[in-house]
Simulated scan of single mutants.
Amino acid sequence: MKPLLLLLTLMTFAVQAGLITEERRYEVNGKTYRGYLALDDAAPAPLPGVLVVHEWWGHNDYVRERARMLAELGYAAFAIDMYGDGKTATHPDQAGAFAKASLASLPEAEQRFNAALALLAADSRVDGSRLAAIGYCYGGGVALHMARAGAQLQAVASFHGSLAPKADPLPAHSPVAIAVFNGAADPLVPAEQVTAFREEMMNANADHLLVNYEGALHAFTNPDADRTAAEFGLPLAYNQAADRDSWQRLQTFLKEKLEPENESAQ
């Protein structure tokens, strides 16, 4: 069943010269979701599009900042809402409940993701044939699941996200290129999961990149991780070196997979 998508409102405001953001409220099967589009209005259109999936905390300032960072690189970046009405959590118990509820029905979770992807692809400023998705923590697991589920994407990247399949593993000869940036010391992604992911990618003959950052813990890209770890006793830590390196590698990855000149050279 295809998701019922209805665009409700569109609000635009300038952030800096060339860079604009648009908050979009839309409906999927009668429920309201809040997305956040960022792009450089001075960049030559149509732009490649990138969905950005939030951490288990929900659609907060962090995921919007990542969308703006992608916009500065020349992408139309859409920070999506997997929980509904843009809600966010302030406590790990609440975040865990939100995340669990959002994935209780994988078909419904896929509808929410695909609705946001369709909204991005339909934008006149976006090239719907050049689409990617990236995600952080919870969002990384969602992005990987959508690659496994056959979403219409050219590339997917996960930052400190779960690597275990939520349903079927990646099918053989999947056209989606996959990049994973993982903390080697992350107890939430044990070594056995990393090994199983490598085997899954090899069995599928997948175009993939796996980078394990020695000593990096969960949420290594988020500067607020240390504060959150201290407040709630969680195994999190910001790692500036891993954050910078993974972001640089993401730029190379997206350029290789989404730039038209690279496609024509193959």
Rank of each mutant, 00 (worst) to 15 (best):
Q111V: 07
L117Y: 10
A109D: 12
Q111W: 05
D123I: 01
L131D: 13
L106K: 13
A122D: 15
A122F: 05
A116L: 06
F113L: 08
Y136N: 07
A132R: 01
S102E: 02
N114S: 14
Q111T: 07
S105M: 12
R125K: 12
G141R: 15
R125W: 02
A121H: 09
G128I: 07
A133D: 03
R148E: 10
F113C: 00
L131W: 13
R112S: 06
R148T: 10
E108S: 12
Y138H: 12
A151D: 08
A115S: 03
H145C: 12
E110Q: 15
R148S: 11
S102V: 01
V126N: 07
R112F: 01
I134C: 04
Y138N: 02
G141V: 09
G140Q: 08
I134V: 15
C137G: 07
A133C: 14
G140S: 09
S124A: 15
A151K: 08
R112A: 01
E110W: 10
N114M: 02
V126Y: 05
L131G: 13
L106D: 11
S102M: 00
L103Q: 15
A115V: 00
Q111G: 03
A151L: 05
L117K: 14
C137K: 00
S105H: 12
F113I: 02
A116F: 05
E110T: 11
A132I: 04
F113Y: 13
G128L: 02
H145W: 14
L117G: 07
E108R: 13
S102Y: 04
A133Q: 04
H145P: 12
A118N: 01
G139S: 10
Q111L: 14
A115P: 00
V126W: 03
A143G: 01
M146S: 04
S124C: 00
A133T: 06
V142D: 02
C137Y: 00
E108D: 15
A122R: 14
A109F: 13
R148H: 08
L106F: 12
A147H: 06
G128H: 00
D123P: 04
H145M: 11
S105C: 13
G140L: 08
S129A: 13
A122Q: 15
G128V: 03
S105V: 10
A149H: 07
P107G: 06
A118P: 00
G150V: 00
A118E: 07
R148W: 08
A118W: 03
L103C: 13
A116D: 04
G135W: 11
R130K: 06
F113P: 03
L120V: 04
F113Q: 00
A132Y: 05
C137R: 02
A104S: 14
A151N: 08
A122C: 08
A115I: 00
C137D: 01
D127P: 05
S129D: 11
A149V: 01
F113W: 04
A118M: 00
R148G: 10
I134R: 02
G128M: 06
A118K: 04
L131Y: 13
L120F: 04
L144C: 09
